[in-house]
Design a protein around this nucleic acid. Structure first.
Length: 566
RNA sequence: GUUUCCGUAGCUCAGUAGGAUAGAGCAACUGCCUCCUAAGCAGUAGGCCGUGGGUUCGAUUCCCGCCGGGAACACCA
């Protein structure tokens, strides 16, 4: 595809020898209104160097740049130099690019030869998979797909919370009040009940906490009874998690959780020791981070056992040695900002220059209308319930609107689950939000079903096509504003993907495919596609195809299906 | 208390590596299915971009203060 920005930068750089093409390229922007042009070059920054008013510079440039086939016109408006791309060229370039690339449209080789680790989801064993887990799960999955699309090799890791004092608690609870049959029958609810019970009892009897710590220490030392229970809890929990992952269409390359690193800790402690990082404090060992404006990091408890942070350090070192990553990305809630700052700093202090390649991608909290979610208090909304209800709701709508649809159940699944995922990926990661059934089950406006519906509409048109639109369309027939607006949206898709990757922000893609869908629906509404005039039909269908493919590629990156009918 | 994030239309949110008139969706009101899927399209209404300074030719965007809200801050993860 012709890179319009680059062409413009090329033209401009020949006129201004003091600036290199890269600088110019970065200055080129898209005007707020298409009537102002397709691309704009603001001249403010040149004022000093040229000792002239920006307006005058823009005017001079507009007069000296010769016409070419690429541009319909180049004109200045105040301090801006506005470029109008020849409409036929614009349409042809964009549509043919999509035709040629298909499912690859928007992809790049930016990350070729580089390996990126994405850690996400990471639920705690023996605890329910609730609505609070959806963010890390779907954001992480999207980031993995985005990086793949940008040419990176990716490794997805589900860093299971399968270790820690919580297992001591569970063992204590199971031994005191547990019942094997109950756990076999309904593992997570039974284990959750035990967990809640433990906390209730521990409030009355604090020695239970010590007992739990002792059991965890035994587990760390390889005690047989502890290990057996732990393995059992883990297996049963994973079965349940996989049910949700199946619904979401998510798989991981590795399930190496916290326990995986349990034997890699001593070496890490040794290095820290050697570097003189460890300090004794109140019987425990810490790293003093005061010089870096952070509270101290507790590395080893007074009873000798390790903590979360030690395991994260060990995990990062292991991953560097094992995968030699270009980037090591963690999709973990913003509550853990300090934790990440601390351990990444410690990695750096241990002498690892790659510490800067460990990237925490934080996101905001999910609350319920009745308050913060709390597993201990049993105040949770299960993710599986949310997904199931969304599918049920979709079935009702299909029954009302498309009673003759084939494969109703499969499509309802695609739409219902897609709606939940889409909503999750529509807002900036960092914002907190309150879960609401109402909002989750609404399918109008800027929602997943809206975008999927648009895709289905486009697909329907392509099925009805009476001409071969894949070749030789007369793109000058697409010069009306509705068509051009849609073409511009499609043109922006590749740079949107890059932006989303650079910012670790899938919502940029979500937002953009809504824009594409809106532009398509307007075009659809105003311009009949299957018309008598076969040349016009061919041209319009080619644009329908490009829009459909763009939406499909966008949805795919978000981990959402694009049904052909609905 | 310290650190950190957030504050844009009634509600939910875009927009900001400084740039032209701040945009959607929902809710409200009004139109459009003898016409390719109305899960749609169009229109009306709705804004001191929390607030006060500063930097700049230019600030919703950057810096500082204040107000309001969230989160984190040693033997949990």
């Amino acid at each position: 595809m012709i890179d319009f920005k680059k062409e413009i930068a090329d033209v401009l750089s020949r006129k201004m020898e003091t600036m290199n093409e890269k600088e110019i390229l970065d200055m080129i922007e898209i005007p707020p209104n298409p009537q102002m042009g397709d691309f704009a070059f603001p001249c403010f920054k040149l004022a000093k160097a040229f000792r002239k008013a920006p307006n005058a510079i823009a005017q001079e440039l507009s007069e000296t740049i010769g016409q070419s086939e690429l541009f319909e016109k180049i004109q200045n408006e105040g301090p801006y130099l506005n470029f109008f791309i020849d409409k036929r060229t614009y349409a042809k370039t964009v549509i043919e690019d999509v035709l040629y690339q298909g499912e690859k449209f928007g992809s790049s080789q930016l990350g070729a030869g580089k390996k990126v680790i994405v850690e996400y989801s990471s639920p705690n064993i023996a605890k329910p998979f609730h609505i609070g887990h959806i963010r890390t799960t779907v954001i992480g999955h999207a980031l993995k797909k985005i990086h793949q699309f940008l040419g990176y090799e990716t490794i997805s890791i589900n860093h299971l919370g399968d270790y820690g004092t919580q297992f001591g608690k569970l063992i204590v609870a199971f031994n005191n009040w547990g019942n094997a049959a109950e756990v076999e029958a309904e593992p997570i609810p039974a284990l959750l009940k035990l967990y809640i019970k433990f906390h209730e009892e521990a409030e009355k009897n604090p020695t239970l906490e010590d007992e739990a710590r002792l059991w965890f220490k035994r587990l760390e030392e390889g005690d047989e009874e502890a290990l057996k229970l732990w393995q059992w809890f883990r297996d049963e929990s994973l079965k349940e998690f996989n049910r949700v992952y199946d619904m979401l269409g998510i798989e991981f390359d590795s399930y190496a959780g916290e326990s995986f690193y349990s034997d890699k800790m001593p070496r890490v402690l040794e290095i820290m020791e050697k570097k003189g990082l460890l300090k004794e404090s109140k019987g425990a060992e810490i790293v003093d981070l005061e010089p870096y404006g952070m509270p101290p990091a507790l590395i080893r408890k007074s009873d000798g056992s390790t903590l979360y942070i030690t395991r994260d350090i060990a995990a990062a070192i292991y991953r560097k040695e094992h995968y030699d990553f270009y980037k090591n990305i963690y999709v973990v809630g913003a509550q853990q900002n300090l934790h990440f700052q601390q351990w990444i700093k410690i990695i750096e202090l241990m002498g690892n220059a790659w510490a800067k390649d460990c990237i925490h991608v934080p996101f905001g909290m999910v609350a319920l209308e009745e308050g913060t979610m709390s597993t201990r208090k049993g105040r949770v909304v299960f993710l599986e319930d949310v997904l199931r209800k969304a599918v049920e709701r979709t079935k009702e709508i299909i029954a009302a609107k498309s009673p003759n649809l084939e494969d109703k159940d499969e499509i309802a699944k695609q739409i219902g689950i897609g709606a939940v995922v889409f909503q999750e990926l529509s807002n900036s990661r960092i914002k907190d939000y309150t879960f609401s059934w109402d909002k989750t089950l609404t399918f109008d406006g800027e929602t997943g079903p809206y975008v999927q519906y648009t895709h289905a509409r486009a697909s329907s048109l392509l099925r009805k096509a009476e001409v071969d639109f894949k070749e030789g369309a007369d793109y000058s027939l697409l010069s009306n504003e509705d068509a051009m607006h849609l073409i511009r949206m499609i043109q922006q898709f590749p740079s949107v993907i890059e932006d989303a990757g650079r910012k670790y922000e899938p919502s940029i893609i979500t937002r953009h495919i809504v824009d594409v869908a809106q532009a398509f629906n307007k075009f659809y509404h105003d311009c009949p596609i299957i018309v008598e005039d076969k040349e016009l039909q061919r041209a319009r269908l080619s644009l329908v195809y490009a829009a459909k493919q763009t939406i499909q590629n966008g949805l795919d990156l978000l981990g959402i299906s694009a049904p052909e009918r609905m």
